[in-house]
């Protein structure tokens, strides 16, 4: 579990460019869950990611991993990086080795693991992201965009971090690539106490895959909770310039219009964010037979 306790981070302290990127923030990332962090550019969400594995040291406040301060000493900070793995935006730009296999092995090698363990982890990570054996032997620079992305993500997964932090993991991918990579990655915590943090400005992605959401604005936390709790604050979210998930938008509009026309509508339905939930509610309201469209899994 990661805990932020009154954490602030200031860029360029004592220079004319001084700017607080994160301002007195406290929250917890719980084990075994997918936490989504949303916020527009400059809201501090990427700084939060770098604070989580001690790439940045807080200007004030503490970041605790399972109760221990990760910035207590240089050695602890270094070791934290293997426990909290970060996949940065466009991670394919960090590939450097001759083969995909060697590149994935970079992290585990730095951890000082023995060869058989490194091999096991490379294979596990490749398998997890869906990279075949032939690709492992080829140069990372010959791969397609989507494959490069996976290879780079495998490089972090191979460290088997307890917490996997993903900064815009699906940026630039087409819809199929998006749902495939997000679907695979969110399986990482299955059957273990590992947790995932997805940082994104795509509301639909965060809403679909997260158990908890943290909405950030101007270096502070706007609201947090389960997706439906967070999306029930739609007016606040809108005001801070965050786009709501499409379905939430539609349901909100429907609610407002229903009120105008005197049609009954449940307020709770306004914070729905998946097609399935909205469909189920509307199908019931429209008294549709469920067998035709109701073959969807919740």
């Amino acid at each position: 579990m990661i805990e932020f306790s009154n954490v602030s981070y200031v860029y360029g302290k004592h220079t004319p460019f001084e700017r607080a990127a994160v301002n007195n923030v406290s929250f917890k990332i719980e084990d075994g869950l997918v936490t989504g962090i949303i916020g527009h550019t400059g809201s501090g969400k990427s700084t939060v990611a770098q604070l989580m594995n001690a790439l940045l040291t807080p200007t004030s406040g503490k970041v605790l991993l399972d109760g221990a301060d990760i910035n207590a000493s240089r050695e602890i900070s270094y070791k934290t990086r293997f426990k909290v793995g970060i996949v940065f935006q466009y991670p394919e730009y960090q590939l450097f080795e001759e083969t995909v296999e060697k590149d994935i092995a970079y992290g585990p090698t730095n951890m000082g693991l023995d060869e058989t363990e490194i091999k096991r982890r490379v294979e596990m990570a490749a398998d997890f992201v869906g990279i075949s054996k032939e690709i492992l032997k080829s140069s990372p620079f010959e791969l397609s965009g989507g494959q490069k992305r996976r290879a780079a993500i495998a490089g972090v997964i191979a460290m088997e971090p307890k917490i996997l932090v993903l900064d815009e993991p699906a940026a630039g991918l087409d819809p199929r690539g998006r749902s495939e990579i997000l679907g695979r990655l969110t399986k990482y915590r299955q059957g273990s106490d590992k947790s995932i943090v997805i940082i994104s400005h795509s509301m639909e992605d965060v809403a679909e895959y997260s158990d908890r959401i943290l909405a950030m604005n101007d270096g502070g936390i706007l609201c947090s909770g389960t997706p439906s709790e967070v999306f029930s604050h739609y007016d606040e979210l809108c005001r801070s310039g965050l786009a709501l998930p499409q379905i939430t938008n539609i349901m909100n509009l429907v609610m407002k219009k229903c009120k105008e026309r005197g049609i009954p509508f449940d307020n709770s339905a306004a914070s729905f964010f998946t097609v399935d939930d909205a469909y189920k509610y509307l199908a019931q309201r429209l008294e549709l037979k469920s067998e035709e469209g109701g073959n969807t899994v919740c």
Binding site: L55, F88, N110
Partner: peptide, 28 residues
């Protein structure tokens, strides 16, 4: 800066070790 962060997150170490070690750490 971004690449350095990404490699640090994978355990790259640019700050300790001798000259050769540090030079090697620059390859990634």
């Amino acid at each position: 800066d971004k690449i350095m962060c990404a490699q640090k997150a994978r355990g790259a170490d640019f700050e300790t070790g001798g000259l050769i070690h540090r030079a090697k750490a620059l390859v990634p």
